[in-house]
């Protein structure tokens, strides 16, 4: 009797296990079966949010499930990082990773909510964007060399603006100070908009500014552009030299956007998402929209993104330490 029960139980168990395995198999095959959350580390508006919505929109069409953009701003992106790193690794919660949030924050904060390299599974980069070095026109400098000469003639007199501590705008200027051996005073503003206004009003004189916000001002002559910070000249200002051409090899300040999942997300899910992102980035409509918000489309393999994160963390750590910025 008990034997029968045992056997029945055994068969039942095997059966249940078989169903579970089958179900699990089909679960991944059928992924995605419901809407996917894409957590953006900033408030709506701005380039990163735009990239998320543009690519998310295209992926919705490709995957047949809604990609829902969820803005979780705060702590320079650490709150969004925390949310995704602790989410179930099932492919239904993804992080829109912004370059400097992921790679500068580890040097800027004593306590990080998660280990960017261990707790996240990279999927792909989406886009890159560069910055430009702009000055107030009344400074009457046209090249980086002239700016450096001016700063050396009057040490500590020039002010440079930034959108806050640890932003690429701040670190770019600190890199310039270090590389050129000049002294400029840091004036922090609440974001890139007020920083750019301060240069236009000559309250500050120097700024590493984002392309989309400064391009119209450079064209209108209210700001003078000295150099761009990408590895190549910018398509929108082909006459503007890069920082490397201006005599600072390796002076590259770019930011990128990417999509990452919580560590432990199954490989088939990662592959499926990567394929969808690759297809989305190849779409003409996605490319034009990304370019319209001042970025360039740039995909990668999951391994490529992992390497990028590793290298950038090391690179920014050095800049932060050189600038003497204390972690908070």
């Amino acid at each position: 009797m008990s034997n029968k029960i045992c056997r029945a139980a055994g068969v039942g168990f095997a059966f249940a296990a078989a169903i579970l395995i089958l179900a699990a198999g089909t679960a991944f095959a059928a992924y995605p079966e419901k809407a996917i959350r894409l957590v953006v580390p900033f408030a709506p508006g701005g380039g990163t949010d735009a990239a998320a919505r543009i690519v998310g929109d295209a992926m919705t069409g490709l995957l047949g499930q809604q990609i829902v953009v969820e803005n979780k701003p705060g702590a320079a992106g650490n709150i969004a990082l925390d949310t995704v790193a602790k989410a179930a690794p099932d492919g239904y919660t993804l992080l829109l990773g912004f370059g400097s949030s992921l790679t500068v924050n580890p040097s800027l904060y004593k306590v990080m909510p998660a280990d960017v390299q261990k707790d996240l599974a990279p999927i792909s980069t989406l886009s890159t964007s560069e910055y430009m070095l702009v000055v107030n026109p009344s400074l009457k400098v046209k090249t980086v060399a002239e700016l450096v000469a001016k700063a050396k003639a009057e040490p500590g007199k020039l002010n440079y603006a930034s959108g806050g501590k640890g932003t690429p705008l701040h670190l770019g200027a600190e890199m310039l100070k270090k590389r050129a051996g000049i002294d400029m005073v840091h004036i922090a503003y609440r974001g890139g908009g007020p920083a750019s206004k301060s240069v236009m009003a000559n309250e500050t004189q120097v700024l590493f500014a984002s392309f989309p916000s400064s391009l119209p001002k450079v064209k209108a002559g209210t700001l003078t552009a000295l150099a761009s910070t990408g590895p190549k000249r910018s398509r929108s200002l082909p006459d503007l030299p890069t920082m490397e051409e201006a005599g600072y090899p390796g002076f590259i300040v770019t930011s990128w956007t990417s999509i990452l999942a919580p560590a432990g997300t199954p490989k088939p899910v990662i592959d499926k998402l990567h394929a969808a992102i690759e297809k989305a980035l190849a779409m003409e409509s996605v490319r034009t929209k990304i370019e319209a918000v001042g970025q360039s489309v740039a995909g990668s393999t999951p391994e490529g993104l992992a390497t990028l994160i590793k290298e950038d963390i090391a690179r920014w750590r050095k800049v932060v330490q050189d600038a003497g910025i204390k972690p908070e």
């Binding site: 709506p44 508006g45 750019s196 119209p216 319209a292 001042g294």
Partner: peptide, 27 residues
């Protein structure tokens, strides 16, 4: 006229202008 947004919402409107290929500014 300056391309300087006064608030988050204005920053969005400004971004929209750029997307449509219109350079905000004195011109």
């Amino acid at each position: 006229t300056l391309g300087i947004p006064g608030s988050g919402t204005m920053a969005l409107v400004l971004g929209a202008l750029t997307i449509y290929g219109i350079d905000p500014g004195p011109r």
